[in-house]
Amino acid sequence: MSPIIEFRGAGKTFGDVTALAGVDLSIDAGEIYAVIGHSGAGKSTLVRLINALERATSGEVLVDGVDITKLPERRLREVRLGIGMVFQQFNLMRSRTVFGNVAYPLKIAGWAKADRERRVAELLRFVGIAEKAWQYPDQLSGGQKQRVGIARALATNPKILLADESTSALDPETTGEVLRLLKRVNSEFGVTIVVITHEMEVVREIADRVAVLKDGKVIEHGTVREVFASPQEPTTRKFVETVLRARPGSADLARIRQRHPGRLVIARISDDRRIGTVLSEATSRYDVRFEVVHGGVKELGSTSFGSLTLELTGADAAVDKLIADLRTTTDVEELA
């Protein structure tokens, strides 16, 4: 598949401050690509390079094969008509109704009145707020506002949708609804979506691929499965652990230790890494008892991922043997 968005050594500096440096990424048409990072990592700047709300100060940014860093402002406006954007704070116009907000980009694109009306009605039905057409943003809940934001971003049939922390201002339930809506946008219209987030849960729910941004650099990228299965960088591992609760935090660990004096190990779980067989033989073969003291397993696409922290009680040599046995099927880490 050909990339619809491509960063080639793209960088951005604001005065002396380097927001992004040497970013190389390629995003394929039709995929949902997530960019995750802590605040200040440069995510918002990165996404704004795609529609040139911020211009790259070095390197190239190709959208549909065109290097937009070289385009004059007038040409950029045409490019932007083909790229929708959804914001964390929704950024709706308070002086216009829901209908007026969604119709606004169509006016900019020069659509005739009748076409605008038909298109807005269609969009509001798609996002499920047709009955709110004549209300003002102030009268809507956060989730409803973001639906308006998504309808507005889709108005001109863009090929690309940029979602900048689009669920960060929403509660968990509404977040789920908005993410499902974005997924429908992707599957029904084939819109390429770039999701900016600081929540690994969002990445797990909707993304195909993910890039991890730290201090303005891409430190890791790959399919969501790869990254969840074997995160390489410490930052990535921490993000993955926010979803999988793979490793007990220091407070958790202190509490666990109080009640569980045995040796503690963390074993990674996935569909092809089964520890049940080994553990079921722990008592009979090694005279080692085990207790599950921490951990979790999550669905990711069609497979399961997770890790369990186990307390192993028995003779030291026997426990060593059991750990060695476990290591033949999966990664095991002993907690000191």
């Binding site: 406006r77 914001f87 950024n91 709706l92 900019i108 507005r152």
Partner: peptide
């Protein structure tokens, strides 16, 4: 910014 992103 939203309006700019729409090409206004």
């Amino acid at each position: 910014e939203a309006a700019r992103a729409m090409g206004a």
